[in-house]
Every structure is written in structure tokens, then in C-alpha cells.
Computed example of a mutant assay.
Amino acid sequence: MPPLKRAAIDEFFRRLSEANPEPKTELEYSNPYTLLVAVVLSAQATDVGVNKATRALFEKADNPAAMVALGEAVVRDHIKTIGLYKNKAANTIKLSEILLAKHGGEVPRDRESLEELPGVGRKTANVVLNTAFGEPTIAVDTHIFRVSNRTGLAPGKDVDAVEQSLLKRVPKTWRLNAHHWLILHGRYVCKARKPDCPACVVRDLCGFEAKVLE
């Protein structure tokens, strides 16, 4: 399908903005550190599952020093309902130690430093930069990848290609919140198996050939 034209993209985000003026992540966090840990834990897990696991954990440890003091075994016990919890517990302790040793216990605001942390890749770094620090980055997960390709918003063969296409094609006016709008749209409307086309506010702009309008 041909990519959406600039005017259609602008209208696409105007409608998403009108429907949800202040989109937020569904992960529960209280500061950049707890956001970072929550996003690391969310790999191959749902936000709902992560939130259930981290509520008690973050009550005990909402900063790197407190997390290291808890120890890996205690962290593991708190997050054992999450997939890959053993590796994630180890990464949580290791990244906390690095934050204390290299960054004064603070979450760094640059991509290179974030991506040096265990369990942190480009997507996680983008989420932290966008949500914690207000950078206009766009983290491409499975929802955003699907919506971008299915609608013609920003087609790409892999997540890196879609990210670069979105950064190029999404008008600056919408770029700060684009990440959240697209995730939520993909999670609740433009779903993988059965997209809810009748409820979609951008259905007439969408290039999805199999869409159902009734």
C-alpha cells in the first residue's frame, strides 16, 4: 500500500490527540528510575503483569541504592510472575549498581549511557527518554510496528526502519506523544488478530485493505 501523505498523517494524529489529549504509559512508576526498571521488566510481558509485580517492589525500593540493598534474591521473588524473571532480576541489580557507580544514582539522559545498562536496548532507551525526560523519541514495539505498516503511516521491514520513517514523517507537533498514541491505538483498537475498525477514529485515512467498516 502507498504510504500516507503528509496531510493525512497530520489529520491522523490530530484525531488521536482529540480522542486522548494527554496519553500516558500504562506502566506504573514514580520517578525515572522506577520507569527504567518497569520498562526493562516489561520485555515479553504485559504492562498489567509488570504493574502487579512492581507495586510491592517499588514500595521497598524506588532508587538504585535501595534496590541493591534488597538484593537479587528478593527482587527475583517480587517479580517471579513475570517471564524471564531470573535474568530480569539480575539485570535490575546490575543496572542499579552501574547507576550508583557511574551516574551518581541518577538515570542518565543520553541514549548511549542508557544503552550501556544491562537489559536496556534502543526501545527501552527511547521510552525512558520520551516518558521521563520529554524527548520526542518514538520507541517501536510490536503495536507501533503493526499500526505503522497496516495503516500506511510509516511502512518499514523492521523496527529500526519504522522508527526512522516515523521520525521523518510524523510532524513535530505530534512527535512527543506519538509513541503513546500509537501504542494505545494498537493495543485497544488496531489489534493484531481482530482490529476494531468500526471504532477507529482514523479508519477513513487507513490503507488497510482488509478493514471492516461495519
Rank of each mutant, 00 (worst) to 15 (best):
H179M: 09
V39R: 04
G121P: 00
R193S: 14
S113G: 06
V189L: 09
L166F: 13
R122F: 05
V128L: 10
F12R: 09
F208R: 03
T137M: 03
P108S: 13
I138N: 13
R169N: 08
K80I: 09
T173L: 05
T173N: 03
A161P: 05
T137E: 10
L114A: 10
W181K: 05
R6V: 10
V170Q: 11
V147A: 13
Y188E: 06
Q44I: 05
L70K: 02
L213W: 06
E163A: 07
I98L: 06
V68E: 03
L99C: 01
I183G: 06
I93K: 00
V75W: 00
V202W: 13
K191P: 10
V50K: 04
G207D: 11
P21Q: 06
A139R: 01
T124W: 02
I138S: 13
P32L: 01
D77Y: 12
K102R: 14
N149R: 14
L57R: 07
L176R: 06
K24I: 14
E214D: 13
A139S: 03
C206P: 05
D204W: 09
A139H: 02
D196C: 01
G186L: 06
P21W: 12
C200E: 07
N149G: 14
K157G: 11
A125Y: 12
K191E: 15
L16P: 01
T151M: 07
N51Q: 12
A90G: 02
P195S: 07
V202T: 09
L27S: 01
A139Q: 02
N91A: 09
K211L: 04
K88G: 01
E112K: 09
L182S: 05
P195L: 14
V37R: 03
Y85D: 03
L70E: 01
